[in-house]
């Protein structure tokens, strides 16, 4: 087995907001690359920068954080907190010689099926010229 096709994308979603949006994309049979894997957390502010780096070291070519926008019931300022974690992760990637643009974030709401699918296609296109993550092979 040589694993799913590139680019492999890890999506961090949130249990109450973006995960239902991603579920809806499937319920509507909207297609996106099967190399996209989703991992859900209660709130995107719970994502450790180290997890993002870890993903790019263990077979993923890109990390997409599906944030809550301003809908998060847990933390009104979770977007700023998540953005901070993402930029910390990007600095670490730069230090390790990996492209910071392998990490991105956007708000995905609980009915954002089409925007999610579009984000996945666009992100996959942006990652393609970068090739597999240097740590993957």
């Amino acid at each position: 087995m040589d694993g799913p096709a590139h680019p492999r994308i890890l999506v961090f979603s949130t249990t109450n907001i973006s995960d239902p949006g991603i579920d809806l994309a499937g319920s509507r049979h909207l297609h996106y690359p099967a190399s996209v894997f989703t991992l859900s957390v209660p709130c995107s502010s719970a994502i450790r920068p180290g997890w993002i780096v870890d993903a790019l070291r263990h077979g993923f070519d890109g990390v997409f954080v599906a944030a809550d926008g301003d809908e998060c019931a847990l933390l009104p300022d979770c977007n700023q907190r998540t953005a901070r974690a993402v930029s910390l992760a990007q600095s670490r990637l730069t230090e390790e010689g990996l492209e910071p643009q392998r990490v991105t974030m956007a708000a995905i709401c609980s009915v954002c099926a089409e925007p999610f699918v579009n984000h996945m296609r666009e992100f996959a296109e942006k990652l393609a010229p970068l090739g597999p993550s240097a740590h993957a092979a």
Binding site: G3, F37, R48, H58
Partner: peptide, 16 residues
């Protein structure tokens, strides 16, 4: 969602 749980998950999803 401990560090150990999430890292184990991330590190085993894709077979390299």
């Amino acid at each position: 969602n401990t560090d150990a749980q999430v890292r184990a998950l991330i590190e085993s999803m894709v077979e390299v």
